[in-house]
């Protein structure tokens, strides 16, 4: 014990001296989803501007919001999903970095410039966007996959081989669209149908879990309600996997980068925002996480396999069914949570 004391005390001292977030100049602290930031992108930015970047991960919008709201966090940039952007604005957590005045502002695809959650892109720069659709192993089921019925009223072949992403908002909204309801609906008639459908359908599901790629490859799963990027990767492992866009309506999402109001490294953060609106750099973001970005002209720098992937490029016939969910008011939220709890009791 006595012999150990020296080195252990040394380690403790080391731990205490270990720098946390150094708030010195030449720093940039990004708070982003895990495994979402291309290291090449960061290296390139560091080399170009001589700024040292630290990335810290979060795993849910609510965690990120709670942490920043509490204060004392030390981050500069955060990457909330579209439906959370109005919340960050309303809570006074993010600032206007003057994006429309930035040199690369013109590179934002016109389609993503005047979005409902951030009109005129005053607060956020697009990072990546995608959809929540139906992933199916067509060697097991060869019927129509462009419908949520695959999940909510599954054909015989798929029973017991279905996975649903454990995301309350996405699952609830897909089910609401399936029954013709609106985003954040509080219509009891629709919600009653939604609840009955979910409760019945759940008996035919195998799991509500993350991580589908291996399971499609190993034939443990034959269908899933999931994100398009994972469907893309699953197809690389199992050529029979296809991604369907439910015609009843499917969920679209976009994550965007925002500047925190209490950021310490505002200038570096602005440099970064402008940097990622450069098509070549935006393509780096997509190449890593396999989702589309919102920057026009980035296509030509994209990896070959992404340029034509039906998971990334939404076919025209289905484009109209995609909807961005809103940030639901507390009344709708309470109803959703009640149904969700009952579903998993």
């Amino acid at each position: 014990m006595t012999k150990l004391r020296g080195p252990l005390a040394g380690l403790t001292a080391l731990a205490l001296a270990f720098p946390g977030a150094a708030l010195a100049e030449g720093q940039l602290n990004i708070f982003n989803w895990g495994n979402y930031t291309n290291p090449e992108l960061i290296e390139k930015f560091e080399a170009e501007y001589g700024v040292e970047v630290s990335i810290t991960d979060y795993d849910s919008n609510d965690t990120a919001l709670a942490k920043v709201k509490a204060g004392g966090h030390g981050y500069d940039l955060v990457v909330p999903s579209h439906s959370y952007v109005p919340i960050w604005v309303k809570e006074g957590l993010i600032a206007k970095p003057g994006i429309p005045e930035m040199a690369n502002y013109g590179n934002i695809d016109p389609r993503w410039r005047d979005v409902a959650w951030d009109p005129g892109r005053e607060y956020t720069v697009p990072w990546q966007w995608g959809s929540v659709g139906v992933v199916v192993d067509t060697s097991v089921y060869s019927g129509d996959i462009n419908t949520s019925a695959v999940i909510f009223d599954p054909p015989e072949e798929l029973v017991g081989k279905i996975n649903v992403a454990p995301e309350m908002q996405d699952v609830m909204h897909t089910a609401i669209y399936y029954h013709g309801g609106e985003s954040c609906t509080t219509d009891k008639a629709v919600l009653r149908k939604v609840r009955d459908t979910l409760v019945e359908a759940k008996k035919k599901w195998l799991s509500m879990d993350y991580g589908i790629i291996e399971k499609f490859a190993g034939k443990d799963l034959a269908a899933s309600l999931y994100w398009n990027g994972a469907a893309f990767r699953a197809r690389e492992k199992n050529a029979d996997v296809r991604y369907g866009y439910p015609k009843e309506g499917f969920v679209l999402w976009m994550d965007s980068v925002a500047l925190l109001k209490d950021a310490q490294n505002v200038e570096n953060a602005k440099l970064f925002l402008n940097f990622i609106m450069e098509p070549e750099n935006a393509a780096l973001i997509s190449a890593f996480a396999r989702y589309a970005n919102g920057i026009a002209g980035s296509e030509e720098f994209m990896p070959e396999d992404m340029k034509t992937a039906p998971e990334v490029i939404i076919p025209d016939e289905f484009a109209a069914s995609g909807r961005f969910t809103e940030s639901c008011p507390p009344e709708a939220q309470a109803l959703f949570t009640a149904i969700w709890t009952e579903l998993q009791k």
Partner: peptide, 24 residues
């Protein structure tokens, strides 16, 4: 750890948790 960590203080488990949704 997820709630207590400051900027740049990911540990192996929080790093893993961040990967869980995308790809491990």
């Amino acid at each position: 750890t997820e709630f207590v960590k400051s900027a740049g203080q990911d540990t192996l488990p929080t790093y893993m948790l961040g990967q869980l949704r995308r790809v491990v």
